[in-house]
Amino acid sequence: MTEVLIAAIITIITAATPLIYAALGEMVTEKSGVLNLGVEGMMLMGAVCGFTAVHLSGSATLGILTAALAGTGMALVFAVLVLGFQATQVATGLALTIFGVGLSALIGQDLVGVAYDGLPRLAIPLLSEIPVIGPILFNHDILVYGSFALVFLVSWFLGRTRAGLVLRAVGDSHDAAHAIGYPVIRIRYLAILFGGAMSGVAGACLSLAYSPLWIENMSAGRGWIALALVVFATWRPWRVFVGAYLFGGITILQLHAQALGAGVPAQVMSMLPYAATIVVLVLISRDRNKIRLNSPACIGKPFHPTS
């Protein structure tokens, strides 16, 4: 029984990890005042490019880096369009997703059916020997450890560093930030590129760890879930973390429940992770004052520098 439970928890962690990357990346982008709806497209590009790199080189590190680069490249297209040419963020983001779905399918044409063992597990000496806790916490691939570190990093960066303060300021009022003398456009470029890189890594989590293979459209709407997580978590890193695990957890549990033959239609069970995540996050973030404090006021608004 314990072994089943441990196995379940480990799959939950693997299911939540891509969401953490994608959502935290998007959160940083949104905190700078830019709404990038292209997460799904950037994830798919990350997934396919990462998988291709591993397939060709055999190096997992190279695969993850390639995935991050692919996401960054997609984000760069978006950034040039919305910051350079002042295109509408919503439409451009949607276009980026559609573009990413198509392009990744094209690139991955010959990869369908290719097998990969998945990322190597890095067991931490001694700690991973602890019964129960060891295998749950200290025997994962590098991406899982990275996701833990990322939550701390993003939380520290936004809350404790001057650069993070400036980033939030740009998202709160780009006109005031410009008037004081901060380079609004440059800061937003960096935030968008970071979001792209993290979406790319999220794609790598899917194609190299969660289900190590490539199939068309394998992100299956996780990019949109990541976007929703950011909003429902009211732009706070730790709530993103909780939301991602909630979603991952219910996804896995309902699969187990279906396997055990629960008397509920499969469609209802598949719906559960989405519904539960939204309900829980809405409940914990009802406080409108908190929303006002944490939501970037300038989100989605184009910035026209004057004078």
């Binding site: 303060l165 939030r168 300021a169 709160d172 009022s173 005031a176 008037a179």
Partner: peptide, 17 residues
């Protein structure tokens, strides 16, 4: 016209300036 950030504290606003 003030250059202030509404959702931030007074302290953060001064720090940013």
């Amino acid at each position: 016209h003030f250059s202030l950030f509404e959702s931030m504290s007074v302290f953060e606003n001064i720090l940013l300036g």
